[in-house]
Design a protein around this nucleic acid. Structure first.
Lengths: 178, 178
DNA sequence: GTCGAAATGTAGCGATTGCTACAATAGGAA
DNA sequence: TTCCTATTGTAGCAATCGCTACATTTCGAC
C-alpha cells in the first residue's frame, strides 16, 4: 500500500510538471502517462478514472504551490503593506510563478464553470495564499485579514492584466495602491 | 459577398451564445455548427479552418462584450470613484456578466499560454473596458487613466476571487479601496 | 437556355479521446 | 510447490476530433 502510494506520488510530481508546462485543459491520459514514465492503462488502474487522476493531480498542484510560496519567501514581516506588496509582486514576476499562473487560470476557468473538484482546489489555493500573505504583513498591521485580502486581490488582478498583455495597467495600480 | 458576410455574422452570434454557455476551451466544430444551424463542413468552407473560425469568434465576442457594457450602463459620470466602482461591481454580479466571465477566463488561460489570437483579443477587451470605465469616472477626476486602472484591476481581481469561490475576499477589499 | 463558379450535402479518413477485455507476470501465503 | 491476488502489457473498442474528396445543387452572367 505504502509502496503503491509512493509510486503514485512520484507519478503525480512528474505529471504536475507536465501540466505546468503544457496546460491542464488539454491534458489527456497518454501524454500524462508518458510524462510519468508509465502507461495510460496504469493511470486508470491506480487512479480509477481520469476524474480520479485529475482530482489527485489538483491536490498535488495545490500542495506544491503553497510549498513553493514558503520556499521562495519564508515567513518574515515586511516594514509596511506597500513593501509587502512589492515583495510579492516581484516574486510573481519570476518565471516559475508565471508558469504556474497558466495552470491557475486553467483551474479558475473550470472552477467558474462549476466543476466541484476545481472549485475546492481553487478555494484551497486562495486560502493558503491568504495565510501566507498574513505571515508576511507588518507585525503591527492593524487588520491583517483585510491587508492580505487587498494584496491578494491586487495580485490576482495583476495576473489577469498580465495574461491579457497589459502588465502596464497592473503596474500603474501597484504604485498608487498604498 | 455581403450576403455571405451577413450569414457568417448570424452564425457567429449564434455560436457566441453557445460558447458563452458551454465554454470556449472545449468548443468543437460539430456542436458549434449545430448551434449555428449549419454543418461543420460549412464552417470550414466559410472560415477556412477552425483557427479562422476561432479568430472570427473571438472578434465577435470582444465586440459583443464592449457593446454589452455600453448597453448595460451608458456613459455617465459617477459622483466619485467609490460610487463608480460600486456601480460596476453591481453590474458584474449580474448573471450575464458571470456567463461572460467563464469565456473571459478561457480566453485568458489561452492568452497566457501564448496563442496570438487570444492575446490580441484579450488586450482589445481590456482596452475597451478601460475606455468605458474612463467614461464613467467623475467628471473632475484628477487622473482618469489611473482611476480606471485601479477600478479595472479590482474588478479583475474580484473576478478571480469569485471564480475561486471566495467572493467574500473581494467584497472586503471593495469596502476599503477608496 | 447555357455555362461556370459558388455553395452545400454525404461520407469518410486518420488521429486521438477515455476506457476495457484478456492474458501474462509477479510475488507472497499456505 | 501451489495457489491467489496484485500488477502490468497488448490490443482494441466506440466516440469524437479537424478536415477532405466527391458529388450535387444553386444561381447569377451571358
Amino acid at each position: 500500500m505504502s509502496d503503491s502510494n509512493e509510486k503514485k506520488q512520484t507519478w503525480l510530481l512528474l505529471m504536475a510538471g507536465h501540466v505546468v508546462e503544457n496546460g491542464l485543459a488539454g491534458a489527456s491520459l497518454r501524454p500524462l502517462a508518458k510524462a510519468a514514465g508509465t502507461s495510460d492503462r496504469m493511470l486508470i488502474y491506480h487512479f480509477g478514472s481520469k476524474d480520479g487522476l485529475i482530482d489527485a493531480l489538483l491536490r498535488c498542484l495545490a500542495e506544491r504551490f503553497t510549498q513553493a510560496l514558503d520556499a521562495a519567501l519564508p515567513p518574515g514581516h515586511a516594514p509596511n503593506r506597500a513593501a509587502c506588496l512589492a515583495e510579492i509582486t516581484a516574486l510573481m514576476r519570476q518565471p516559475q510563478a508565471a508558469a504556474f499562473a497558466h495552470v491557475w487560470l486553467d483551474i479558475l476557468a473550470e472552477a467558474a464553470r462549476g466543476t466541484t473538484v476545481f472549485q475546492t482546489t481553487a478555494a484551497a489555493i486562495i486560502e493558503g495564499f491568504l495565510d501566507w500573505i498574513v505571515g508576511r504583513l507588518p507585525e503591527d498591521d492593524p487588520d491583517p485579514a483585510t491587508g492580505a485580502a487587498v494584496i491578494l486581490a491586487h495580485i490576482e488582478g495583476a495576473l489577469v492584466l498580465t495574461a491579457a498583455g497589459r502588465p502596464d495597467v497592473a503596474e500603474r495600480v501597484e504604485n498608487t495602491l498604498f
